[in-house]
């Protein structure tokens, strides 16, 4: 009975748009789902560094080199804010990283695709960050305080990412014939995976209903996807690129774009681990972690030695 009363009170707080903070009572399921969602978001930022870091050493101008490096570094920072928010729920970063490395935790499917050309840097910034922003802005009002505050920080920094990506695409689309072809090719490869980023239709999405009730999730997958398409298609048209969807059409009645069927089997294959780069991405993260073990150990050992010296001095 007690638990039921607490759950009712909790839901009333949610309905009143009150923020839930780390020490507040919360249903165990709420805590678990938040850990899953926040850590998945954090893992996505960190794994998401890899496809873009792939082009830092080959960036074709110093300005682009610096901007790309700064962008990827921001993503590391975002991962850090999110791990930090997640740790307030009573879990250690080590556990979260272990879950990622052993395949127990997921990250956004989009980062399992390869970055084959420089134009992919434009496509990722424009489409992938664009999709992420669509998702993230509503999260600034999510019910869990530390998550909302982390998202506010992330959103502040995110707008430069999308602008940078779009500017790269625009420069390429207005450049040489080779550059324009490079841009179109990147759009062709990244368009559908970006739409898949929003996840399957909510009817098929197992966690959606409860997440909406707890105001962890504020809009449905389909709503977010539609908003993304409506915003992005004119952007493509503006720079003379063609969205690779023969069924794309403006629907005057509905005031939005109709678009083609998404091939969800591709999405599920990638989630299962069969995307082009799943194994490489995880291998890279595992390698960094394992090769970094001696570094982390050295820092701990040194800190302990220093602390000991200080106590001896004080004595």
């Amino acid at each position: 009975m007690e638990i039921k009363r607490l759950e009712d009170k909790f839901q009333k707080r949610i309905d009143r748009e009150e923020r839930i903070e780390p020490k507040d009572w919360m249903p165990e399921a709420y805590r678990k789902t938040l850990i899953r969602q926040i850590s998945q978001h954090a893992h996505s930022e960190v794994v998401g560094m890899l496809p873009e870091a792939n082009w830092i050493t080959r960036a074709p101008s110093l300005r682009r080199k610096a901007a790309l490096l700064a962008k990827v570094q921001d993503e590391a920072g975002h991962g850090l804010y999110l791990y930090s928010a997640c740790e307030t729920l009573g879990i250690k970063r080590e556990e979260l990283i272990d879950a990622l490395h052993t395949g127990k935790a997921k990250y956004s499917s989009i980062f399992n695709y390869p970055t084959l050309t420089w134009a992919d840097m434009g496509a990722i910034g424009w489409l992938v960050d664009g999709a992420a922003i669509q998702n993230q802005v509503p999260l600034c009002r999510t019910s869990y305080g530390p998550y909302a505050r982390a998202m506010i920080r992330v959103c502040k920094e995110e707008s430069f990412h999308q602008r940078q990506g779009y500017e790269i695409m625009m420069t390429l689309a207005r450049g040489t014939a080779d550059q324009k072809a490079m841009a179109q090719d990147a759009l062709n490869r990244w368009w559908w995976p970006s739409l898949m980023m929003f996840g399957p239709s909510d009817a098929e999405s197992p966690h959606s209903a409860q997440s909406m009730a707890w105001k962890i999730k504020r809009f449905s997958n389909d709503e977010l996807r539609q908003a993304f398409v409506d915003k992005t298609v004119p952007q493509a048209e503006f720079i003379g690129l063609t969205v690779p969807d023969p069924d794309l059409q403006w629907n005057e009645e509905k005031g939005q774009y109709d678009f083609g069927e998404i091939h969800w089997d591709e999405f599920y294959e990638v989630i299962k681990g069969n995307g082009p780069c799943n194994r490489e991405r995880i291998a890279a993260r595992v390698k960094a972690h394992e090769e970094g073990a001696w570094v982390r150990e050295a820092a701990v050992a040194y800190a302990e030695k220093k602390a000991k010296k200080n106590t001896e001095k004080a004595a």
Binding site: L50, K65, L69, A76, G79, L80, A284, A288, G292, V295
Partner: peptide, 18 residues
């Protein structure tokens, strides 16, 4: 910059790229 994404811990990845 070659360390970006491969540092021993996220915080140090950021430090090196800075």
């Amino acid at each position: 910059s070659e360390w970006c994404g491969h540092g021993p811990i996220l915080e140090q990845d950021i430090a090196l790229t800075n």
